[in-house]
Amino acid sequence: MRRYKRTAVAVAAAAALGATGGVAGSGEPPVTGPPPGTAAWNADRALGRALPDPTRAAPADVAAFFAGLGPADRQELVERHPLVVGNLDGVPVRLRYAANARALQGTAYARLAQPGRQILAFDPRGRGQVAEVHGDLERARQVAVIVPGADVDADSFDRAKDPYGTPTGMAKSLRAATDGTTAVVAWTGYTTPVGVGPDSATGGHAEAGAPRLARFTRGLAAVGAPRPSLFCHSYGSVVCGLAAKDAVAKNVVVFGSPGMRADSVRELGTTARVWAAKNPTDWISKVPNVELFGLGHGTDPAARGFGAHRVPAERAQGHTGYFAPGTDSLAAFAAIAQDTGGAVR
């Protein structure tokens, strides 16, 4: 009987959220598929041979292809197909930076091309997707990837308001907490839900985003980067849960999570170490942790029975305070990113 009551509460909550005017989801379809410009790329024979098909080529094959090109041929591809080169996992890091800087010129997101910014991915479709690197991705001994939750896109991923609720703010804070030793990628590489409503209560956007995240991690491996630690906030933890079995990662850290579409760490099917944080003031605790008829995201990863390593978060505040300087959660995140996670209590 208790189970049915909880289920009824979950369905009622999702229905209520979906009907709450301005905070309801937009029903926006998620962006999927290969980068824009793929058709022209696949038809290009300027180098006298076929280019690797973004739809089918593995990141390791892409890396091997570019390793066989000279500087002039690489530059020609950047100039002819900046959106493909800039978004194709397995392309050398600096070449992606150059391609995205070119693709961003003259767009509404031109600020992202300012000197010093390292844009590893930029897709203008929909609300825009972007990934930015903080630090030296080519030489860092540790790499972390921030996977955000709802209401984050190319316009808002680096907004000044509520900085520790944005992937850019989280990335900068984590890098500072590791004394600059960790390269951190602020990854908004999927279409996030808008508001707290049907899009956030269902798994469609996460199901579309998970393969993109898994491929992104394989792209990091293809260019020689260390296995990353994934830091997954709110709805981003749903994405990470679905991507876990296919992603190349050494840690999966979720915080403020509504669930990972799994009942336990074992069900995630990953060899990565799984961590979970939830502070007592986080409103996400009021969301019922059930899944029925596609609504809800399942067991709370911070619950003892889930099997994740618990991250202390008593000094964090609210849903977006986990990366605030001076919090126990940030200190623990830094230890995990630096491979000293055994010191986390």
Rank of each mutant, 00 (worst) to 15 (best):
L77T: 02
P124Q: 07
F216C: 07
A221G: 11
F66R: 03
A101I: 02
L268T: 07
L292M: 12
L137S: 09
G116A: 04
P226C: 05
R266V: 15
P163H: 05
V184C: 03
G128D: 02
L104W: 04
E267V: 10
T188N: 15
L330N: 10
H134G: 04
T320Y: 04
S285K: 14
T202S: 14
V130A: 13
A46R: 11
G259K: 09
G25E: 08
A43M: 08
V78S: 01
A43Y: 01
A225I: 00
T299R: 14
P167L: 04
D44S: 04
G90L: 06
V274A: 11
D158C: 01
Y235A: 06
H233G: 10
G70L: 08
K245N: 05
G241A: 08
A244P: 08
H134C: 07
V130I: 14
F333W: 05
G27L: 05
A272L: 09
F333Q: 02
L83M: 03
N42C: 12
E314V: 11
E28G: 03
N87W: 00
A40Y: 00
R315E: 14
M170A: 14
L69V: 04
G68C: 07
Q105M: 04
R304D: 15
G296F: 11
L230Y: 05
S173W: 05
P288A: 11
A57D: 03
G204I: 08
A276F: 09
S173M: 02
M260V: 15
T191R: 06
G106M: 03
R212W: 06
T166G: 02
A64R: 13
D162H: 03
Y322S: 06
V184D: 01
Y4I: 14
A244Q: 09
K250L: 01
C240E: 09
R74P: 01
A64F: 01
R139A: 13
V147R: 04
G25V: 05
G70E: 05
W283Q: 13
V287A: 13
L83E: 12
P301V: 13
A110Y: 03
E267T: 12
Q129R: 15
Y322T: 02
A177K: 06
K286M: 12
Y322L: 09
R266F: 11
E79H: 12
T320S: 15
E138F: 01
V239D: 10
V194K: 14
D73N: 07
W275V: 09
G269C: 10
G126E: 04
